[in-house]
Write a protein that binds this DNA or RNA. Structure first.
Length: 614
DNA sequence: AAAAAAT
């Protein structure tokens, strides 16, 4: 299959949350929209102590008291951690069974994360009803390796995530698990560590959130050790490389944990720390953070990692590259986090170079490696074009593209265009120039204040400034719906970054266009780029093939290792493989169409590449 | 060489 499974998948995760994209509902028959048949508002739910009387607060385990007993799940939500939560002496004195006492006082009204979104997405809902063909990614290639890999599931119903979580899954309009979810969720629920290759947008966030939330809900009560009164003890930590990505993960996690009593807090830099501190004080089970701010919080002893049971690293390859690694090691290895084996660790990334896997394996214990076919590599939905443009001609060339595109803008609005440049300075200057020339543009990069960054993103998403000039800060993971065109004004040096960038378009089963400006400065990318495009059945200009041929010797740096996956289990690289399962034999049970999907295999990959598989 | 991430 050569369609963009990952993007399809992606959107089951991200975009389905909007009311507009009702396409996936087909299967359920349940009318998703705001009809919430079974939903009982919080204030009513807790009115009636019901049959299950206020049991003497089985400590903090909250809904787990009702584990397996779905009806009672809501009877004792944990929303009322009270001020004493985690505080001195493990002060859960009030106990959450204590309805009359502190209930209303301590309880924060939980904002319904599903409703905020309904309005925000309204603007686009009209144009958004292209169908999403879920069958299209049924047979995505999947590779797993490691000891005793738990079998994948095909439906959410097969997994006992609990009624509250199931309800949120319905609210999100997820019909079926995406490939990464089908495999990763059972692995996580089995308590196993995981290294997963899957692009953000393939449903990854849910893949690690569901097991975490479910695990926290059914977890045994935790005595949080006394430390400073203000120290909090999250049970799960999710790290991501950019602030915006952390925000996005937090938004999603909030939806998944709505009314489960599981609290999600986000902490990142560039924003005043005080609000974040207050959020933490109100209790946190899952902390989503960028590394710098987290280190700050740890050093202030406002957060302790002592009780961490789940650790998830998003975009893990980025997190372990040269700039980040020391910080990550500090957090994971040099603070008070339980060691591998004593916690459950999940690493996700679209690409996993061997060296990064080696570093990452320090964090893992007897882990399972999971790879699902990669985004962008096999998609018909993203049309990739490469044009030879000299540096000096780039601006006028961009102008031509934008003019042409203005003509077929949707509903009088210019289609959203994301323009990637190499430098922050370049971003500012291009933005300025675009504005001067009558194209409403804004920019996002690391020299802008967090406020400016967030404003820019909002303004772009809303269509106010339909052109966003970005550095690689926006390349990874960000789910910006409705991007019609990604322009690589400056190509990246790494083909993986290219893949990440173009993955910002072609989502929700809609077509996307990616245009790259190529010139002699990019010759080191030529080979990888032309291979990638061939693999995706894109037309490769003859001049690019010539560049590729010229750089073919000595250009190993950018050579992609695996073709259809972003990585391959490095443990297999030795003369003998430590993993017990072989993906060509038993392990393949998971991998539906693996090896059989001609779209991938035939995709024009040279003979040399296949050999990378054995 | 650049970008990201704490103040």
């Amino acid at each position: 299959m050569r369609t963009s499974w990952a993007d399809l998948a992606a959107n089951s995760a991200a975009e389905n949350a909007g009311p507009g994209s009702s396409a996936n509902n087909v299967g359920t028959g349940s009318n998703l929209a705001p009809t919430r048949p079974v939903y009982v508002p919080p204030h009513l739910r807790n009115r009636q102590p019901a049959a299950e009387s206020p049991a003497p607060a089985p400590a903090y385990s909250g809904p787990s008291s009702g584990a397996g007993n779905s009806g009672s799940r809501y009877a004792a939500p944990r929303n009322d951690y009270r001020p004493g939560y985690g505080g001195g002496g493990g002060g859960r004195t009030g106990g959450w069974g204590n309805k009359s006492g502190g209930w209303d006082r301590g309880r924060e009204r939980e904002v319904n994360p599903f409703e905020e979104e309904d309005n925000a997405e309204e603007a686009f809902s009209e144009q958004e009803n292209t169908g999403i063909n879920f069958d299209a990614y049924e047979d995505i290639p999947v590779e797993t390796s490691g000891d005793n890999v738990p079998p994948p599931v095909n439906t959410f119903a097969e997994i006992d995530l609990g009624e509250a979580l199931n309800q949120n899954i319905r609210r999100c309009k997820y019909v079926r698990p995406t490939p990464v979810q089908r495999h990763a969720i059972p692995i996580s629920l089995a308590g196993r560590d995981l290294m997963a290759c899957a692009q953000t947008g393939s449903g990854k966030t849910a893949a690690f959130c569901f097991p975490i939330i479910s695990g926290i809900m059914r977890g045994q009560s935790v005595q949080r050790p006394p430390r400073g009164v203000r120290t909090v003890y999250p049970l799960a930590l999710v790290l991501s490389p950019t602030r915006e990505l952390s925000m996005q993960i937090h938004e999603e996690a909030r939806k998944f944990s709505y009314q489960t009593g599981v609290r999600v807090v986000v902490a990142y830099g560039g924003a005043p720390i005080n609000q974040q501190l207050r959020d933490l004080e109100r209790g946190v089970d899952i902390l989503v953070a960028t590394p710098g701010r987290l280190v700050d919080l740890l050093e202030r002893a406002r957060v302790s990692l002592q009780m961490i049971r789940y650790l998830a690293l998003d975009e893990a390859d980025r997190m372990l590259d040269m700039g980040f690694e020391p910080q990550i090691r500090k957090i994971v290895e040099q603070m008070d986090m339980p060691p591998p084996g004593a916690r459950q660790t999940m690493l996700f990334s679209a690409t996993f170079p061997k060296e990064i896997q080696r570093l990452a394996s320090d964090f893992l214990s007897n882990y399972i490696f999971l790879a699902v076919g990669r985004v962008g590599s096999s998609t018909d939905l993203i049309v990739q074009r490469v044009e030879y443009v000299q540096e000096s001609d780039k601006r006028s060339h961009l102008m031509d593209l934008l003019h042409a595109q203005r003509a077929n803008g949707v509903q009088g609005k210019q289609a959203l265009t994301l323009v990637f440049v190499e430098t922050k300075k370049g971003a500012d200057s291009l933005e300025h120039w675009l504005c001067l020339n009558g194209f409403p543009a804004t920019t996002i990069h690391g020299d802008r204040s967090q406020q400016e960054r967030e404003l820019a993103l909002r303004s772009f998403k809303s269509g106010n400034t339909p052109i966003l000039v970005a550095t690689d800060v926006a390349a990874r993971g960000l789910d910006i719906p409705h991007v019609a065109h990604v322009v690589n004004f400056d190509l990246p040096n790494d083909i993986d970054d290219y893949v990440h960038r173009i993955g910002r378009t072609g989502r929700a089963g809609k077509k996307g266009l990616a245009t790259a400006f190529f010139n002699d400065n990019n010759s080191s990318l030529a080979r990888a780029l032309s291979e990638l495009m061939q693999e995706a059945n894109q037309e490769v200009p003859a001049w690019l093939s010539r560049f590729a041929a010229r750089s073919s010797f000595g250009g190993g740096r950018n050579r992609r290792s695996g073709g259809r996956f972003g990585g391959r289990d490095f443990r297999r690289d030795g003369s003998f493989s430590r993993g017990s399962s072989d993906y060509y034999s038993a392990g393949n049970g998971s991998g539906g169409g693996y090896g059989g999907s001609g779209g991938y295999a035939g995709g024009g990959y040279g003979p040399g590449v296949t050999s990378a598989w054995d």
